[in-house]
Design a protein around this nucleic acid. Structure first.
Lengths: 344, 344
DNA sequence: ATCTCATATGAAATCGTTACCATGAAATAA
DNA sequence: TTATTTCATGGTAACGATTTCATATGAGAT
């Protein structure tokens, strides 16, 4: 059917093993032979078949990417796309390829991961999320497939490779930022609370209050799922509180925009009547009006470094598992302003 | 190393070929043997190695995805993510996997495509864009690797599988929509003009004028690259025209939002002083203020159908090449209004 | 001239599956 | 009873590469 290493060998009058050595540019082959073999390869249009190589060399030069169950929506969210871009950039530099899971239920994703790991389609895996009791992670740990997760592991942190932000600190900082602007009643609107990142950010939020000897009211703490249309309800509830918040920390730009729209639909003018901060500094933060002040989690870096870390591990399997914290940066735009009437 | 079909065979006291038949659930094997073999597989933890299978069966059950050169930015743009989601959904249903190109220069993408096709890593390819003189397309045509493109082929249309919108009609419709609202001076702000879609939409724009016996002024036709910060300049130019447009057709939601921001920074209030329509109906169209009236190109469907078409071709290679037009729908939101002073 | 030792290349085993051909036993037909 | 099918399974050669071990050749040392 296609041109194989044997065809090249025959035509160049050498052994298949010699051709193989030419492919890998082995120093044991004379320049003369290399030239001859290469010109034959060119002539008869040879191209390596990776499956043959993988079978014996046991390396696919491919890494698998596992997205959230809600990947149905995670592609929507630029945060994921940006991580993917970072991963993609890094892989390209090292000549690795990407293999994507396509499932959209927890069950089917699990199966796909097993399939791609056991089936030897990938050398390693990057998991784009972190949550407790994840069967995918348990499986990856059992198998000896190297993997790195983006986000802090729910358990066995020290033996797991991960790259993450310091979400506690980031959340603390951004909440404090609002406090410095005079806000005392600050709402926290988190995302899907099953993910680790949600805990950390809520934690940091509380710490900001503790630091000042204040206390956040429980009624200020809310969650909205990216997938459900409950932004309006959460905002309504919040505005109807006796002491309605004057600022909001929303743990994701996308949700922040939904919240802003909900606020506007209640007639509030922004940022005058409500200060908002988002997270991730995605494209939408730049484009919103008012432009969103947000915590840049450097998603591209998150992806890039996770891929680097994984490929490093693949190259040196005996090296100990590292992990990495990517710094966050508060990007100030126009969605937060000094609270007018400080007393009250 | 790992558990192979031979280990199973030995333990179950059958031939490797029998195990292989059990895996594919061949009807030629008795239920009794199947049960026994399966229990052994379970017991010693067997899992198929796909590379071995691919080598002989010559089918990878994987399709490759090729993105624009500007993939650096295409991930940013939700349009691409949504197509990817559609592809992903379809592939998952048929148990196919996805293989992504990671390059970000024209040269490196080309190489990766050759690598994945010649290297037999994929059974077919989906190209997420269309432009003239694309070496990737020439290559795919030369090789006999089935592929489908999203967007109208620049040439040899009838022999190429593609899925596309009727962009000419869509653009005509949406321009006419603005005209019905009383607008006569309408700007067209296209994206990267190297892509086929840009031509079609400009074409439709002109046709809308022709249909009414009007003519679009050349100065109203502009282009902005997603990657460069020239939205403001384009807007400035347009506003400084003697007869500045009162409405704008922007061929992409993302750029539409950039244009809206540029307009606002010039002090215009929207939609009162400028009506805008976008394209693609991405998430950002829903979230913008005013919410963007846009042409829903059904990007998820675009992706979904392209994958279906490709997999169908893979299953029936002799079937003739089909192509498909996905209908577009104008989604009216708040960014377009009746022009106030009709006379003028 | 003989021996040693690189150097360049070849031969063959191997990786994990599948697919073709063969075969023995049981079932059916003559 | 014998011949002919059918059925369930076994044996083994691919598939396309890599890799280990072996070997011929020639250069240099003695």
């Amino acid at each position: 059917m296609s041109v194989t290493i044997k065809d090249v060998a025959k035509k160049a009058d050498v052994a298949p093993s010699t051709v193989s050595r030419v492919i890998s540019d082995s120093p044991r082959i004379s320049e003369k032979t290399k030239r001859r073999v290469r010109s034959v390869m060119e002539e008869i249009g040879y191209h390596i078949n990776y499956n043959g190589r993988v079978l014996v060399s046991k390396s696919t030069q491919t890494i698998g990417i596992v997205t959230k169950v809600s990947s149905v929506h995670s592609f929507d969210n630029p945060f994921f796309s940006e991580m993917l871009r970072g991963i993609s950039d890094s892989c390209h530099e090292s000549d690795y390829s990407l293999y994507l899971t396509t499932g959209n239920t927890e069950e089917s994703i699990y199966k796909e991961v097993v399939k791609m790991v056991q089936g030897k389609r990938v050398d390693g895996v990057i998991v784009l999320y972190s949550r407790a009791d994840d069967p995918v992670i348990s499986y990856l740990r059992k198998s000896d497939c190297p993997f790195v997760m983006i986000g802090k592991p729910a358990d066995r942190t020290s033996e797991t490779m991960y790259v993450d932000n310091d979400n506690i600190q980031a959340s603390l900082d951004v909440t404090d930022h609002l406090m410095k602007l005079g806000h005392k009643r600050i709402a926290f609107i988190g995302g899907d609370s099953q993910f680790e990142v949600a805990r950390d950010r809520l934690n940091g939020f509380h710490q900001a209050f503790t630091k000042r000897g204040w206390k956040a009211d429980d009624s200020w703490i809310r969650h909205i799922q990216t997938s459900s249309p409950d932004a309006q309800k959460v905002v309504d509830d919040l505005l109807e509180l006796e002491d309605a918040p004057t600022a909001m920390v929303v743990t994701d730009d996308y949700n922040a925009m939904r919240v802003m729209n909900a606020l506007r639909s209640r007639g509030l003018s922004l940022p005058q009547e409500m200060s908002i901060v988002g997270f991730n500094n995605t494209m939408i933060a730049r484009l919103s009006t008012p432009a969103l002040t947000t915590v840049d989690t450097q998603s591209v870096q998150l992806g890039y470094q996770s891929a680097e870390m994984l490929m490093d591990k693949l190259k040196h399997p005996d090296r100990i598992n590292r992990s990495m914290i990517i710094p966050t940066i508060i990007v100030e735009r126009e969605s937060c302003i000094q609270k007018k009437d400080k007393g009250e």
